[in-house]
Design a protein around this nucleic acid. Sequence first.
DNA 1: CTGAAAGCGCTTACAG
DNA 2: CTGAAAGCGCTTACAG
Lengths: 328, 328
Amino acid sequence: MEKNIISAMEVAKLANVSQSTVSRVFTPGASVSEKTRKKVLQVAEELNYQPNALARGLITKKTNMVGLAMKDIQNPFYHEVLGIFTKKLKAMGYSVLFVYTENEEIQQEEINHFLEYNVEGIIVTDALLSSKIVSKLKHNRIPVILFNRNDKSLQCHSVSCDNIDAAGSIAKYVFEKGYKEIVFITGKINTSTSQDRQKGFVDFLISKGIVVTILESDYTYEKSFELTKNLIQSGYKPDAIFGANDITALGALDALKDRKISVPDETIVIGFDNIKMAAWPNYSLSTWVQPVEEMVDETINLLTLNSNDDEPKAVKVKGHFIHRKTTK
Amino acid sequence: MEKNIISAMEVAKLANVSQSTVSRVFTPGASVSEKTRKKVLQVAEELNYQPNALARGLITKKTNMVGLAMKDIQNPFYHEVLGIFTKKLKAMGYSVLFVYTENEEIQQEEINHFLEYNVEGIIVTDALLSSKIVSKLKHNRIPVILFNRNDKSLQCHSVSCDNIDAAGSIAKYVFEKGYKEIVFITGKINTSTSQDRQKGFVDFLISKGIVVTILESDYTYEKSFELTKNLIQSGYKPDAIFGANDITALGALDALKDRKISVPDETIVIGFDNIKMAAWPNYSLSTWVQPVEEMVDETINLLTLNSNDDEPKAVKVKGHFIHRKTTK
DNA sequence: CTGAAAGCGCTTACAG
DNA sequence: CTGAAAGCGCTTACAG
């Protein structure tokens, strides 16, 4: 099934102009007389002509493509992120080359993929990068931004919530309410998000003389449900549970319900992300709102910065706590 | 910030071969001596060389890109779909050009986008296409597959669950259990999924003399929650509720809980899709399993079919009912 | 097995 | 404002 791509040349012939002129009509800012433009546009319309982005990219070295790599497709937070990225990038004229990676570390293979297509930048959410890959990209001068991750050992920009600070605020809230038996449920332990949220939370409480019980989970609902259930069954009765993200907190919340522990009367629960489900009446989860739009804006900003500055920037945004029915 | 793309020519010079030979080394199946291949590969490695997919695509007219357009990014079902598509397409050597569309109808603009990049096929999930666009694509000989949609008026392939049949099975189940007060909550009324599920469900029950109460919703949790709550408050007491998808059913389920109606004892609830959350202990929703993997396989199959056959194929898959705790 | 050459569909100085 | 020409980085007959 061969394609019948129609080229600028064919338009040119029918419009009685040169191919260069056709090209100019489709190049914003190029000088063409109104009369010529009209004629060309009309023929182009008739022929269903469309500039070939590949050829254009080849010559201009601007492909208008951005690579987006994601891993944890289960977390609704990232769906929202994906939606916003796609929307905003499109508005700026970029196409999104999407890669979903199952591996813990973004593979060489996937990056090569991006490189082959000459993407103008790469956004990596929720996946790890090896420093080898980062330096390869640096060498090719294509910017990489870590989204919702923050790895100081890597020489690349990152955008994330100030997780330490946010978790500190939550700890403060919990402390001031007078809770003593406090649990933190981790996410995947090798993620900066989980580590930072744990650190901010625990450090504050330790400074107040409170020891936090840590449940080592993995950002899945199932694991958090299990851990919380086991904890309760072991006889421990928490006053407050802070989950490293909303899915985690939801797992804990359901385990509490399962064990007939009343929320927020007996135990309060707090999450992180403010995914859509957190607002569902059945959950009504109190959580920390990550300002997704702002994070996306910062990321795109960094992507198009085009600075020769070698200093990686770590942009931190704040966000805020939202009180719903799982806290008092 | 200029890129320093290194070309086959540079590799050729350093390896003391022609550029054609370098190209052959990177073309599977081309004949190159083992010795030459090794030398070229070594130099390529040193230089970090990578074939330029744009140039290759330009000459071969094979871009290895597939366009994927989605709309309802809120429904977890589609996240799963996205993940599986990306994974399988990558395994076949395809890249995914992703577009998220907010509009009810996939816009001309988005399709043009795909066309400019010479994608080899377009997959549209959960969005509408105008017949004008379809014929334009047909003219350009690029295949379009509707995923989880089914529009007979459109001249393009589609892959979906046999929704009428599935909903009929569910109706049969509900009927045989002896329920009389039966509710169907629609999805977006202009979608084939909602229409077909309603038809299959209602038609069966009507044939048994049972009139189904229809709640017109829109595939959102919130709306379904609201409608169900209102229904209960109006004094109506359903025996069984079938939601056009899981999110819908979950909204109903939570409304029932909110109204202190015991599930499944007083009212049973059934969904459609089998999203991950349906299996969460707190919900444990009985639902119809869409065989996503199979649907994706069929779609990719259709995409790569390359037939000149003008007859649009409407592939239907079956799926099956899964009994959890919202049914008896 | 290998090289020289044509050509994919574009952009963009360079002239006029 | 417009055209002829060079060139982006590849693939692929065509010779040898």
